[in-house]
Write a protein that binds this DNA or RNA. Sequence first.
DNA 1: AATCTGCAGACTGTCGACAATCTACTGAAT
DNA 2: ATTCAGTAGATTGTCGACAGTCTGCAGATT
Lengths: 244, 244
Amino acid sequence: MDTLSRAGLSGAAVNELREEILEGRLNQGERLSEVSLSTTLGVSRAPIREALLHLEQEGLVVSLPYKGASVVSLSPQDFLELSTLRIALEKLAWARAMERITPEAIADLNAIIGEMEFAVKSDLKAKLVRLDLDFHERVFIMADHSRLYTAWTAIKWQVALFLLARRKKVDDYHNIIVEEHAELIQAILNRHDPDFERLIELHIGSGYGRLNSAGAGSPAEHPAAEHPAAGSPAASVSSAPAAR
Amino acid sequence: MDTLSRAGLSGAAVNELREEILEGRLNQGERLSEVSLSTTLGVSRAPIREALLHLEQEGLVVSLPYKGASVVSLSPQDFLELSTLRIALEKLAWARAMERITPEAIADLNAIIGEMEFAVKSDLKAKLVRLDLDFHERVFIMADHSRLYTAWTAIKWQVALFLLARRKKVDDYHNIIVEEHAELIQAILNRHDPDFERLIELHIGSGYGRLNSAGAGSPAEHPAAEHPAAGSPAASVSSAPAAR
DNA sequence: AATCTGCAGACTGTCGACAATCTACTGAAT
DNA sequence: ATTCAGTAGATTGTCGACAGTCTGCAGATT
C-alpha cells in the first residue's frame, strides 16, 4: 500500500510487524523479543534488529539498550505531541502543495473523498482511517519536500494509532470526515486563502479534543501547559532529553 | 559533546563517522564501504551497519539497497528544504519554549551568547557553528516535546553542514550571530511578542539567502517554486516519493 | 563497429554462534 | 523479617562466515 521501504527480509518484517501493531494483534506495551520474533517470522535476528530499528524510527516501538524493544504505548500526552507537531508539519505541507497542485492531483483527492463517502455508507470504520491517512499522505507527497516527507513518516503510523483509538472512543468520526476533507480541498482551490492555517489547526486539533475530553466543544489551540516545572518522570515514549 | 545515542560500539561509530563528515575528512559523496569501515574502526560489520542506518536517519548518509552508503552531498535545493522545514520546527519549538522558560534557562542561553562573543573576538569560526547549534538545541530541549526533538535531530547535523558551508562561502557570519541570537532571547522575554514567528523566519531564512545569492538582500519567504511539473530525476537525497 | 551474453570480483544481505549485560531468584547475614 | 551478595537464566550486542546481488569487463555474435 505504501513504502516497501527496505530490501528483502527486513522490509518485509517491518511491514508485517507494523500491520500487527496497527491491527491490535500486538498489544501496546508488549515486549518484542528478537529471538521469538525471528522464529515466528522465520528469519534470523539480523533483519529483525534492523526492522525494530526502523519501527522505532516510526515511533511504533520503543527500545532501551540491553533491555529490548516493546510496542509503544501512547498516552494522552503523546497524542498532544502528535497533534501539535502534525499541525506544524501540515501547515508547511499545505502551503507547498497549494503552490504545486495539478488538476489530476485534485481529482485524486476527490476520488479519496468519494471512497470515504462509500466507506461511511457501508460502515467500514477501519477503511475510513486508511483513507484519512491516504488523503494527507498525498498532500505531503504533493509538497515535494523530501525532509518534510521524512518527518511525516516519522509520525504517520503513530497518527494511525491515534485515529484508531479515537474511532473506538468517540463515534462521530463518520459524521465529519467527508465534510472536513472537502473543506480542505476547497482551501487548496482558493489558493491564497489566508485562513487555511487556522483550518488545519481545527482539522487536526479538534480530533485531539474529541478524543480526550470526549464531547467537549472547544478544540483549544494550545490546551494549557502541563506543569512545565516539576517534570514528572512519566516514562516518556521517546529519547527526548529532560527539560532541565 | 551531545547525544551518546546508542550503546557501545555502534554509538561510538556514529559519533566517529559524524565527526569525520562534519570535519570534512570524509568528502561529500564519498562511498562508505562496510568492510573498509569495519577494518578502519576495528569493529565488525554489525555495529557499522547500525551506525550507517542511524547516520542515514540523521541525513548525513544516503544508501541504496545492494548499492551501499555514501556521504550525503547537499545541493542548494537541499539547503532550501532544510531552511523551510527548520523554520516550521523552530516556530513550534519557540512557542513552547516561551511557555516553559525558566530564569536558569535564560542564563544558559546568555552564557552561550557570551561564548559567541568570545569566539568572534578570537576568530574561532568552527566554534561559532557549534555554539549556534547548541543555542538552538537548548531551545528544542526547553520545548519539552519528544517528537519535535526527534524531528530536530533528523536535520540537526545537516543544518551543521549548511552552517559550515555558509561560513566558507560568505564571511559575515560573525557580524550578525551575536546580535541575532540576542534578539531571539529578547523575543522569549516579551513572551507574547506577536512577531516572533517573523523573527524566526528572518533568522533562519536569511542565512539561506546569504548562502545562495551571496549578497542579495531579500531573504525571500518562499523563494519561488522550482518546476513542480516535469520532475527532474536529480538524484534527490532522501527517500522522498516523486511528486506524481 | 556495435550489441549482447557470461563470468569474475566486490559488495551488501543474512545467518548461526559467542560475548556482554540485565533480571530475578536463592540464600546467608543482620 | 529485611537486606544484601551471588548466581543462573534469559536477552541483547557483537562477531566471522556464507548467500544473494550488483558492476564492470571479456569475448562472442550480428
